[in-house]
Nucleic acid binder design. Sequence first.
DNA 1: TTAATTTGCTAGCTTTTTTTTGCAGGGAAG
DNA 2: CTTCCCTGCAAAAAAAAGCTAGCAAATTAA
Lengths: 128, 128
Amino acid sequence: MAEKREDARQPQTLGEFLLHVRTTKRLTLRQVEEATNREVSNAYLSQLEHGRIAKPSPNILYSLASVYAVPYERLMEKAGYIIETSKRDVGEKHGRVATFANENLTTEEEEDLLKYLAFLRSSGGSKP
Amino acid sequence: MAEKREDARQPQTLGEFLLHVRTTKRLTLRQVEEATNREVSNAYLSQLEHGRIAKPSPNILYSLASVYAVPYERLMEKAGYIIETSKRDVGEKHGRVATFANENLTTEEEEDLLKYLAFLRSSGGSKP
DNA sequence: TTAATTTGCTAGCTTTTTTTTGCAGGGAAG
DNA sequence: CTTCCCTGCAAAAAAAAGCTAGCAAATTAA
């Protein structure tokens, strides 16, 4: 079946994403291995980037997320792990994150806000 | 080495927690297996409850969380996976940005959420 | 009591993850 | 050209996940 393509798709696979981030930051496989404190071996990272690992451990993804400075949840999603977050993926909204970055949300608050957000979007939808 | 104790510790292990929830709900291993649509075999669940699995897949934990009606995050935490949640440290930084970073909020939504957050914190706050 | 069913559990096996090893290609020197 | 050192990968090996089958104790049925 369809395994992988290296074209620039919208929903990148985990491997494509990891490769893209690493090369963008001009890091070598071994540099990443060091940066993760040897938690992720260079050989294993190579396998990840080539889509040869279906279900990597979240700990691995967490290490990579830290080193790459990308959101942990992003990697979890791309790894195919279900996330409690709603999967709204509409393309034309702006990332208004800055405000919430200063808010220090608790887990409860986060869940409540997400629910409320889902409610907002289900009722007062202003865009297709 | 230290394996486990069956006393009632504060931070229950994943196995202790799963066993407790299941017995509380009076479900058998096979009933859970069915309830998860055979995603979690009864034998494997038994191993989980006895702490014989170090890193279960999040998919498994998600199935169990659904069936048991417990928060997915809780199982992830008990499984030893780092979770971007519940930082009660008010004085610290680290906001819950990641989740909302993927949400791509519009300005309107952001304002609404901020209002709702203010409401949450003014009413039923669980904050010291 | 005995038979049938249910329950938890484990041994054994397959599959997948993760580690280890090492190798071919490509420079940069020497 | 040879040597040395990266860099990315492949392939083998080790370890762990996860499933099937089936056993032994308990429960229920007859």
